[in-house]
Design a protein around this nucleic acid. Structure first.
Lengths: 152, 152
DNA sequence: CTCTAAATGATAGACATTCTCATCCAAAAG
DNA sequence: CTTTTGGATGAGAATGTCTATCATTTAGAG
């Protein structure tokens, strides 16, 4: 935990930014909720517990900054809210998402299935891939018809 | 053109909806701009030429309805605006997008590269894919370093 | 300590989208 | 033909997310 904070601090300082208490609190919240895809509002409320004086604008600014630094990944699932995830070593690229249209659950696939496609884009389209997003919408295992879910 | 309008009409009626003049005008605009990815606002302004009395809310409602009917595909490129495309026979699924981070251009790949992956999801994850989205962000052919783009 | 620039918090603003509600209209019922 | 009914509409208010503004605070340089 502290090591990762330290790493972020160094990344920021390398670009001339400071790890202010507000920024540190924000990063800590992200670290403590690594499994979730928090919205800016989510982050704001969680940070408020640690540092009640923080302002919403600062959270937005910090998340934007961390996105530029590639410390977090800014995602958009089409629900009108940007969501933020820490990037880890094993997670340089977006992972893929399985979004269930019945129960709304989201599963992540951590493998990168797109490398072959990216090579094809490079050769056939001369398009250099920097990032990608792959989301599937459908019906998850729990909600399959042969496996009735929790339905009132 | 008329045939496609007729088809939409039947789809709507099958679900108990009517093809009102406003809805028809909206569909016509989408048909006439099939190549573009129009935002709701874009559609609104184009429809206004045909039917100046239409309201923005109706356009939103219509696009939402057409999305539910799977007549159009609602997309989101992360720029804060939803965009809408007609679905055609050759286009049952989302196509893939190459979004250039330098010039902002967008290229579409009409082939479906994901069928093998979807089969894998079905068997390995018991996830039934209804739809998918695959966007790549990177540098397009025109903007490759060895091929300087239109830069002021 | 003083100065400067970055960082912050509060709030207003911009923007896309949705909600509300009075009205309209087409088709069904009488 | 008239009335009734319920979906559809238009206008504008309301919502929600995010950004801009600006006065104030803070941290570090000198």
């Amino acid at each position: 935990m502290e090591a990762r904070i330290e790493k972020v601090k160094q990344q920021l300082q390398a670009q001339g930014y400071k790890l202010t208490p507000q920024r540190e609190a924000t990063v800590r919240v992200l670290l403590e909720n690594e499994e979730d895809h928090l919205s800016a509002e989510d982050v704001f409320m969680l940070v408020k517990d640690k540092a009640p004086e923080i302002g919403l604008a600062t959270v937005y600014r910090t998340l934007e900054l961390l996105t530029e630094m590639h410390v977090v990944e800014k995602m958009n699932f089409g629900d009108g809210v940007a969501r933020y995830d820490l990037r880890t070593e094993s997670n340089k690229h977006h992972h893929h998402h399985l979004i269930c249209v019945k129960c709304g659950s989201m599963t992540e696939i951590m493998e990168d299935w797109l490398l072959p496609l990216e090579e094809r884009l490079e050769t056939e389209y001369r398009f250099t891939v920097l990032d990608h997003r792959l989301d599937f919408q459908g019906i998850c295992a729990k909600c399959q018809p042969d496996n009735p879910p929790e339905q009132p």
